[in-house]
Amino acid sequence: MTTEPRAWEGVLAHIEARLVDGRLRLGDHLPAERTLATDLGVARSSVREAIRVLEAMGLVRTQTGSGPSSGARIVARPDGGMQSLMRLQVAASGFPVADVVRTRLLLETAVAVDLAERSADVDLSDAERLLAAMDDPALSPAEFLALDANFHLALAEASGNTVVAAMMSGLRTSIEGYVLAGADRIPDWPAMVDRLRAEHRAVLDAIVAADVDGARTRIHDHISGYYRDASPADPSATPVHHESR
C-alpha cells in the first residue's frame, strides 16, 4: 500500500529546495502564507504546519504582527544528520553555558586563524550576506541573534573543515539560547547591537586582511565580551579568560 504525501510535506520540500538552490537566502523572509498556499495549491493550514516544522528544525524564525519584521525569516540552511544528532545531544544534556563558551573559543579562534592564513582562497560570501542581513533595523533581538549565530557558523563552514562546521551547527541552538537569554540583561540593547555589528565586521576585516593575530584576538574578545556582559550576576559563574599565546 502506498501513502500519499501530506500537503505540508510538499510545502516543506518546496521551501527546502529553494534554500538549497539559493533562491531563498539567509535573512530572507518566506513568501506570505496566502501566497505560498495559492502558488502550491494547498490550504493555508498546510503552509503553517510546514513553517512550524522548519522553525523546529531551526531553519526559520517567525514573528507575529504586521510590521516589516513579521512573518517567517530564514535564519539557517538545511544541514546533515551529524549536526542534527549533535543538536539533540545538546538539547538533552543541557550543557553548562560556560562549557559552551569555552568550546566556542577553542573552535572559533582556530577557525578565524585558519581563515586569515588562507584569506585569499576562502569564500566569505555567506558571512558577508549575514552581516548585511543584520544591518536591518527592524530585526527583533531573537532575529538578530539567530543571524548572529549563523554568521559564526558561516565562518566555520568557510574554513572547509566539515567536522568543525558540524560541531558549530550542533551547538547553534545552545549558542542562540544563551545569547538570547542574555539579551534581557543588556541595559541598552540598541547600543549592544551596534557594538556586535562592529565586532563582526572587525573579525571579517582581519580575516580578509590576513591579520592572523587580529582575527584571533577579535573573535575571542567578541565571544567572551558578550558572555561577560550578558551573564547573570552569579558569583559562582566561571569566567572566561583570554589565554596568552
Rank of each mutant, 00 (worst) to 15 (best):
M1E: 01
M1N: 08
T2W: 06
T2L: 14
T3G: 04
E4Y: 11
A7V: 04
W8V: 01
W8M: 08
V11T: 09
A13G: 14
R18S: 00
D21G: 07
G22A: 13
L26E: 06
L26G: 01
L26M: 08
P31L: 11
R34M: 12
T35I: 05
V42Q: 07
V42N: 09
R44T: 15
R44F: 03
V47R: 11
A50N: 00
L54R: 05
E55G: 10
M57E: 12
L59Q: 01
L59M: 11
V60E: 11
Q63G: 11
T64E: 14
G67N: 15
P68L: 11
P68F: 03
A72Y: 00
R73V: 02
A76W: 02
M82R: 12
M86Q: 14
M86K: 07
R87E: 11
L88M: 08
A91M: 14
A92G: 15
P96K: 13
V100L: 13
T103I: 10
R104N: 04
L106H: 09
L107N: 01
E108K: 12
V111K: 05
V113D: 08
D114K: 14
E117H: 04
R118M: 05
D121C: 07
V122Y: 10
V122L: 08
S125F: 04
S125E: 14
D126K: 01
E128N: 02
E128R: 14
R129G: 04
L130N: 10
L131I: 11
L131W: 00
A132R: 10
A132N: 03
A133Q: 06
D135L: 05
D136W: 06
D136I: 10
P137G: 03
P137E: 14
A138I: 07
L139F: 05
S140T: 15
F144H: 12
D148L: 04
N150L: 07
F151D: 02
F151Y: 15
H152L: 11
L153H: 12
A154I: 11
A154S: 14
E157A: 15
E157L: 07
A158L: 13
S159T: 06
S159F: 04
G160D: 06
M167P: 07
M167V: 11
S169R: 15
T173Y: 13
T173L: 13
S174V: 01
E176V: 10
L180E: 15
A181M: 09
A181F: 03
A183Q: 13
R185G: 04
P187M: 08
W189E: 15
M192K: 14
R195F: 06
R197V: 06
A198T: 01
H200A: 00
A202R: 02
A202V: 08
L204G: 10
L204T: 03
A206Q: 04
A209Y: 03
A210I: 09
V212P: 04
D213P: 00
D213L: 05
R216T: 06
Y226F: 15
Y227S: 03
D229H: 00
A230V: 10
A230M: 02
S236R: 14
T238K: 04
V240I: 15
V240W: 03
H241F: 10
H242F: 09
H242M: 12
H242I: 07
